[in-house]
Simulated assay, not measured.
Amino acid sequence: MLVDLHSHTTFSDGRSSHSEMVEAAIQRGIAVYGISDHLCFHDNPWTTKPHLFEDMRSTMAALKTGTSSAKILFGMEVDYVPGCESRVALLKADNGWDYIIGSVHYLGDWNIDSNAPDWEGKDVDATYSRYLDLLEEMVDTGLYNIVGHLDLPKKYGHYSSIDLTEKYLSIGQKIKAKNMAYEINTNGRIKPCNDFYPHRTIVELYHQLGVDVTLGSDAHHRDNVGQFFDEAAAMLRAVGYTRICYFEKGEKRYLPL
Protein backbone atom coordinates (compact mmCIF):
# COMPACT_ATOMS: atom_id res chain seq x y z
CA MET A 1 0.00 0.00 0.00
CA LEU A 2 1.43 3.34 -1.02
CA VAL A 3 1.15 6.93 0.11
CA ASP A 4 1.80 10.13 -1.82
CA LEU A 5 2.13 13.10 0.50
CA HIS A 6 3.73 15.69 -1.78
CA SER A 7 1.70 17.39 -4.51
CA HIS A 8 0.70 20.86 -5.65
CA THR A 9 -2.47 22.31 -7.10
CA THR A 10 -3.55 25.54 -8.77
CA PHE A 11 -3.58 27.13 -5.31
CA SER A 12 0.21 27.39 -5.63
CA ASP A 13 2.22 26.41 -8.73
CA GLY A 14 0.34 23.27 -9.77
CA ARG A 15 -1.58 22.97 -13.02
CA SER A 16 -4.42 20.72 -11.86
CA SER A 17 -7.21 21.29 -9.36
CA HIS A 18 -7.57 19.55 -6.01
CA SER A 19 -10.31 17.28 -7.35
CA GLU A 20 -8.27 16.36 -10.44
CA MET A 21 -5.27 15.44 -8.31
CA VAL A 22 -7.37 13.33 -5.95
CA GLU A 23 -9.04 11.57 -8.87
CA ALA A 24 -5.62 10.73 -10.32
CA ALA A 25 -4.42 9.37 -6.98
CA ILE A 26 -7.46 7.10 -6.69
CA GLN A 27 -7.00 5.86 -10.26
CA ARG A 28 -3.38 4.94 -9.46
CA GLY A 29 -4.30 3.04 -6.30
CA ILE A 30 -2.78 5.46 -3.80
CA ALA A 31 -4.14 4.48 -0.38
CA VAL A 32 -3.23 7.72 1.42
CA TYR A 33 -3.01 10.93 -0.57
CA GLY A 34 -1.96 14.33 0.69
CA ILE A 35 -2.00 17.71 -1.00
CA SER A 36 0.77 20.03 0.13
CA ASP A 37 0.77 23.36 -1.66
CA HIS A 38 3.69 25.75 -1.24
CA LEU A 39 4.03 28.29 1.54
CA CYS A 40 7.10 30.47 1.14
CA PHE A 41 8.49 33.44 3.03
CA HIS A 42 9.84 35.07 -0.11
CA ASP A 43 7.71 36.89 -2.64
CA ASN A 44 7.45 34.53 -5.59
CA PRO A 45 4.76 33.28 -7.99
CA TRP A 46 4.62 29.76 -6.59
CA THR A 47 3.56 30.33 -3.00
CA THR A 48 -0.07 30.07 -1.90
CA LYS A 49 -1.35 33.58 -1.30
CA PRO A 50 -2.76 34.23 2.19
CA HIS A 51 -6.18 35.27 0.87
CA LEU A 52 -6.60 31.72 -0.50
CA PHE A 53 -6.09 29.94 2.83
CA GLU A 54 -9.77 29.93 3.83
CA ASP A 55 -10.82 28.57 0.43
CA MET A 56 -8.07 25.96 0.65
CA ARG A 57 -9.25 24.81 4.08
CA SER A 58 -12.85 24.43 2.90
CA THR A 59 -11.79 22.66 -0.29
CA MET A 60 -9.73 20.15 1.66
CA ALA A 61 -12.50 19.61 4.22
CA ALA A 62 -14.95 18.78 1.42
CA LEU A 63 -12.51 16.35 -0.18
CA LYS A 64 -11.84 14.62 3.13
CA THR A 65 -15.51 13.99 3.80
CA GLY A 66 -16.50 13.28 0.20
CA THR A 67 -13.83 10.76 -0.79
CA SER A 68 -14.17 7.20 0.47
CA SER A 69 -11.76 5.15 -1.64
CA ALA A 70 -8.59 6.85 -0.35
CA LYS A 71 -7.59 8.65 2.82
CA ILE A 72 -7.18 12.34 1.97
CA LEU A 73 -4.80 14.45 4.02
CA PHE A 74 -4.29 18.21 4.20
CA GLY A 75 -0.62 19.07 4.18
CA MET A 76 1.55 22.04 3.33
CA GLU A 77 5.07 22.38 2.01
CA VAL A 78 6.47 25.15 4.17
CA ASP A 79 9.84 26.73 3.47
CA TYR A 80 12.38 27.08 6.21
CA VAL A 81 14.26 30.36 6.44
CA PRO A 82 16.10 31.52 9.58
CA GLY A 83 13.73 33.35 11.91
CA CYS A 84 10.51 31.91 10.47
CA GLU A 85 9.69 29.75 13.47
CA SER A 86 7.02 31.95 15.08
CA ARG A 87 5.23 32.40 11.76
CA VAL A 88 5.26 28.67 11.06
CA ALA A 89 3.88 27.93 14.53
CA LEU A 90 1.03 30.42 14.08
CA LEU A 91 0.15 29.19 10.58
CA LYS A 92 0.23 25.61 11.81
CA ALA A 93 -2.20 26.42 14.60
CA ASP A 94 -4.53 28.43 12.35
CA ASN A 95 -4.79 25.98 9.45
CA GLY A 96 -5.01 22.56 11.08
CA TRP A 97 -2.68 20.81 8.64
CA ASP A 98 -2.25 17.07 9.02
CA TYR A 99 1.46 17.46 8.33
CA ILE A 100 4.10 19.89 7.16
CA ILE A 101 6.80 19.09 4.63
CA GLY A 102 9.80 21.23 5.47
CA SER A 103 11.86 22.39 2.52
CA VAL A 104 14.80 24.65 1.88
CA HIS A 105 14.56 26.41 -1.48
CA TYR A 106 16.39 29.63 -0.66
CA LEU A 107 19.91 30.35 0.47
CA GLY A 108 19.47 33.97 1.45
CA ASP A 109 17.72 35.50 -1.54
CA TRP A 110 18.97 32.87 -3.98
CA ASN A 111 16.34 30.34 -5.03
CA ILE A 112 18.47 27.29 -5.82
CA ASP A 113 15.52 25.35 -7.23
CA SER A 114 14.18 27.29 -10.20
CA ASN A 115 16.83 28.59 -12.59
CA ALA A 116 19.80 26.55 -13.78
CA PRO A 117 21.73 29.61 -15.05
CA ASP A 118 21.76 31.05 -11.52
CA TRP A 119 24.24 28.34 -10.55
CA GLU A 120 26.88 29.70 -12.91
CA GLY A 121 29.97 30.71 -10.97
CA LYS A 122 28.60 29.44 -7.64
CA ASP A 123 30.78 27.50 -5.19
CA VAL A 124 29.03 24.11 -5.26
CA ASP A 125 30.69 22.77 -2.10
CA ALA A 126 29.77 25.92 -0.15
CA THR A 127 26.23 25.73 -1.51
CA TYR A 128 25.79 22.15 -0.28
CA SER A 129 27.25 23.03 3.11
CA ARG A 130 24.93 26.00 3.59
CA TYR A 131 21.92 24.06 2.33
CA LEU A 132 22.53 21.20 4.74
CA ASP A 133 23.14 23.61 7.62
CA LEU A 134 19.71 25.16 6.97
CA LEU A 135 18.12 21.72 6.66
CA GLU A 136 19.56 20.77 10.04
CA GLU A 137 18.31 24.02 11.58
CA MET A 138 14.87 23.25 10.18
CA VAL A 139 14.80 19.81 11.78
CA ASP A 140 15.96 21.30 15.07
CA THR A 141 12.86 23.53 15.24
CA GLY A 142 10.58 20.51 15.72
CA LEU A 143 7.86 22.31 13.72
CA TYR A 144 7.94 20.09 10.65
CA ASN A 145 6.96 16.47 10.06
CA ILE A 146 8.71 15.50 6.83
CA VAL A 147 12.01 16.62 5.32
CA GLY A 148 11.43 17.40 1.66
CA HIS A 149 13.81 16.63 -1.25
CA LEU A 150 16.77 16.12 1.03
CA ASP A 151 19.58 16.55 -1.50
CA LEU A 152 17.90 19.16 -3.71
CA PRO A 153 21.13 20.96 -4.78
CA LYS A 154 21.86 18.12 -7.21
CA LYS A 155 18.78 19.03 -9.29
CA TYR A 156 20.73 20.59 -12.16
CA GLY A 157 23.57 18.08 -12.00
CA HIS A 158 25.80 19.84 -9.46
CA TYR A 159 27.50 17.56 -6.92
CA SER A 160 29.71 18.33 -3.97
CA SER A 161 33.35 17.30 -4.17
CA ILE A 162 33.55 16.82 -0.40
CA ASP A 163 32.30 13.86 1.62
CA LEU A 164 29.04 14.91 3.29
CA THR A 165 28.31 11.59 4.99
CA GLU A 166 28.79 12.95 8.51
CA LYS A 167 26.44 15.85 7.82
CA TYR A 168 23.74 13.57 6.43
CA LEU A 169 24.30 11.28 9.41
CA SER A 170 23.76 14.14 11.86
CA ILE A 171 20.57 15.23 10.06
CA GLY A 172 19.26 11.67 9.98
CA GLN A 173 19.84 11.20 13.70
CA LYS A 174 17.92 14.40 14.39
CA ILE A 175 15.04 13.41 12.09
CA LYS A 176 14.68 10.23 14.10
CA ALA A 177 14.99 12.01 17.46
CA LYS A 178 12.25 14.47 16.47
CA ASN A 179 9.95 11.60 15.35
CA MET A 180 9.93 13.03 11.84
CA ALA A 181 10.41 11.28 8.49
CA TYR A 182 12.09 11.99 5.20
CA GLU A 183 10.57 11.50 1.79
CA ILE A 184 11.63 9.68 -1.31
CA ASN A 185 10.76 12.48 -3.72
CA THR A 186 10.37 10.90 -7.14
CA ASN A 187 10.16 14.20 -9.02
CA GLY A 188 13.93 14.23 -9.33
CA ARG A 189 13.63 11.52 -11.98
CA ILE A 190 12.26 14.08 -14.45
CA LYS A 191 14.89 16.69 -13.61
CA PRO A 192 18.42 16.99 -15.04
CA CYS A 193 19.84 14.89 -12.17
CA ASN A 194 17.53 11.98 -13.17
CA ASP A 195 17.56 10.62 -9.63
CA PHE A 196 15.27 10.38 -6.65
CA TYR A 197 15.80 12.80 -3.79
CA PRO A 198 17.70 11.62 -1.81
CA HIS A 199 20.22 9.34 -3.49
CA ARG A 200 20.13 5.66 -2.58
CA THR A 201 23.31 5.91 -0.48
CA ILE A 202 21.49 8.29 1.87
CA VAL A 203 18.46 5.99 1.96
CA GLU A 204 20.73 3.10 2.95
CA LEU A 205 22.32 5.21 5.68
CA TYR A 206 18.94 6.28 7.05
CA HIS A 207 17.60 2.75 7.04
CA GLN A 208 20.60 1.71 9.14
CA LEU A 209 19.76 4.55 11.53
CA GLY A 210 16.09 3.49 11.72
CA VAL A 211 14.77 6.73 10.21
CA ASP A 212 11.18 6.53 8.95
CA VAL A 213 10.46 7.18 5.30
CA THR A 214 7.48 8.25 3.20
CA LEU A 215 6.81 8.83 -0.50
CA GLY A 216 6.08 12.00 -2.43
CA SER A 217 5.70 12.48 -6.16
CA ASP A 218 6.00 16.27 -5.91
CA ALA A 219 3.41 16.28 -8.68
CA HIS A 220 2.41 19.62 -10.19
CA HIS A 221 0.01 18.01 -12.66
CA ARG A 222 -2.41 15.11 -12.33
CA ASP A 223 -0.33 13.05 -14.78
CA ASN A 224 2.58 13.00 -12.33
CA VAL A 225 0.74 11.76 -9.24
CA GLY A 226 2.48 8.62 -7.99
CA GLN A 227 5.18 8.87 -10.66
CA PHE A 228 7.91 6.18 -10.47
CA PHE A 229 6.41 4.76 -7.27
CA ASP A 230 6.91 1.15 -8.31
CA GLU A 231 10.60 1.88 -8.78
CA ALA A 232 10.83 3.80 -5.50
CA ALA A 233 9.04 1.07 -3.54
CA ALA A 234 11.30 -1.59 -5.04
CA MET A 235 14.36 0.42 -4.01
CA LEU A 236 13.05 0.82 -0.46
CA ARG A 237 12.37 -2.90 -0.17
CA ALA A 238 15.83 -3.71 -1.52
CA VAL A 239 17.39 -1.42 1.08
CA GLY A 240 15.40 -3.17 3.81
CA TYR A 241 12.39 -0.98 4.55
CA THR A 242 9.18 -2.91 5.25
CA ARG A 243 6.86 0.02 5.95
CA ILE A 244 6.26 3.63 5.04
CA CYS A 245 4.70 6.32 7.16
CA TYR A 246 2.31 9.22 6.92
CA PHE A 247 1.03 11.84 9.34
CA GLU A 248 -2.59 12.44 10.24
CA LYS A 249 -3.32 15.38 12.53
CA GLY A 250 0.38 15.39 13.28
CA GLU A 251 0.43 11.78 14.44
CA LYS A 252 2.68 9.32 12.66
CA ARG A 253 1.02 6.23 11.21
CA TYR A 254 2.35 3.33 9.16
CA LEU A 255 1.43 1.19 6.19
CA PRO A 256 3.19 -2.00 5.04
CA LEU A 257 5.38 -1.46 2.03
Rank of each mutant, 00 (worst) to 15 (best):
G210Y: 14
N187V: 09
A31L: 01
H149D: 11
L52S: 13
M56Q: 06
S103I: 02
D13V: 04
Y206A: 10
T141E: 08
D230R: 12
G66S: 11
Q227K: 14
R189H: 09
G216C: 09
L215T: 03
T59E: 14
P117R: 09
D163Q: 12
Y33H: 05
V139L: 11
G216R: 08
H51M: 03
N194T: 12
E54M: 13
I244F: 02
A232T: 01
H158R: 14
Y80D: 07
G108Y: 06
L52E: 11
L135G: 03
V239N: 04
I26L: 12
D109E: 14
C40G: 00
Y144E: 08
E136L: 14
I30E: 04
E136S: 13
Y80L: 08
D79W: 02
R130M: 13
K252F: 06
V139K: 06
W110N: 00
S161N: 13
V239I: 15
E251D: 09
G148K: 04
T127P: 13
S217W: 02
G34Q: 06
L205G: 12
T48Q: 01
A24W: 01
E231C: 01
S217Y: 03
S16A: 13
H8M: 11
M21K: 01
K64N: 02
D133Y: 05
H6A: 05
Y128L: 11
E137Y: 07
S217Q: 08
G34Y: 01
Q27W: 00
L257N: 10
T127V: 15
L205I: 15
Y168S: 12
T127W: 03
F11C: 02
T214F: 08
H158M: 07
E77F: 09
T127L: 15
N194Y: 12
